[in-house]
Every structure is written in C-alpha cells, then in structure tokens.
C-alpha cells in the first residue's frame, strides 16, 4: 500500500520537492523526499483533527516509510489512532479502543493497515488544503518559507 499525495499538492510544492520517484536532490533548496512535505501536511491535518477522504486526485508517493522515518513509525501510528479516536468520539478508556487499533494497525512494515494508510493520506490531503488556504496562498519557493507556514498552521489549527 502506497502513501499517496494529491497531484495538486505535488504541483503546488514543485519548487521545494524533487520530481516524483526521485530519492533525494543535491539541490539544497528542495526537501530530500516528497514524503517530508506529505508528512508535514499530515501533521497539520492530525493537529487539526480534520481529514479529507476524497481520493480522486491522489498520486502514489512511496511504498513504506523512507528510511529516515523508520524509527518514528510507532509514534506516527500511535498519533493516528489517538486522533481518530478523538475525531470519532471514541472514549479511549473504553474497550472500543482495541477495535479501533485493530482497524488501523497491522504487523506490516509501516505498522499501519491499509485502512490506516488511507486515513493518514486523508489527513495529509486535508493538511495540504489547510496550509494552502492560509498562510500559503502562493507556491512556496523555499524550504524555510514552507516550514514557517507549517509552524504557523500547527499553532493555528491545533485542537
């Protein structure tokens, strides 16, 4: 199962990400992986507890986490479950929590089930929509511009 990102988002971030399929760029103005930007957008969506499940504009990004994210996959999976519980109003102290975990987690390399990856993609899509609404109305031209907007979005949309 691939992590997927919106084609519009890929285009919007084209100045700061390497072409699809490229793993790393010597160009210092770009992020090493497209996944870096996907992940930041997912964090915005997760912080805002908002997702967008429209899959019509999604492009395959990468299968499994880039190596640099391997050590943090359990935390990302935990955050996803905790956020879904909050969004769905599941009491984390009730046994229903276990069902939720079984739905989104698996013993796959990513620790996420297909449904879990779909949800993370949906948070990333919403995160992109949010950061694009405000504060990034124009295409970011540098990594620092994007990160500044990312930081502002987290402060603004966090619940």
């Amino acid at each position: 199962m691939h992590f997927k990102f919106s084609k519009n988002a890929q285009s919007f971030f084209s100045y700061i990400i390497s072409p699809a399929g490229s793993h790393g760029a010597s160009n210092q103005n770009k992020f090493e992986y497209q996944f870096d930007v996907y992940y930041c957008c997912a964090l915005i969506g997760l912080a805002a507890v908002q997702l967008d499940e429209d899959t019509s504009d999604l492009n395959d990004l990468v299968e499994g986490y880039p190596k640099k994210y391997e050590d943090n996959k359990a935390q990302i999976a935990g955050l996803l479950v905790a956020t879904e519980a909050k969004r769905l109003g599941v009491d984390v102290h009730s046994p229903k929590l276990e069902d939720l975990m079984l739905e989104y987690l698996s013993d796959d390399e990513t620790l996420l089930s297909e449904e879990g990856i779909k949800k993370l993609n949906a948070y990333a899509l919403k995160g992109y929509n949010l950061i694009h609404d405000y504060p990034l109305s124009d295409k970011p031209t540098s990594r620092e511009e994007f990160l500044e907007a990312f930081n502002a979005s987290i402060q603004m949309y966090s619940k």
Partner: peptide, 27 residues
Amino acid sequence: TKSPYLISKSLCNRMRELGLSMTKLKL
C-alpha cells in the same frame, strides 16, 4: 519533526493519553 510529540503540547497529550489508556485497559 519526525517525533510528532514535539510538534505541540496538545499532540503530545493526545499520544500520552492513548498510552495511559492502553496501560489501564491492559492492552
């Protein structure tokens, strides 16, 4: 950033609460 609990206090609390619940529910 790769450690999501450093992003904001609320995200960290959300994750910790899940961890505590798992302990309480003996999961």
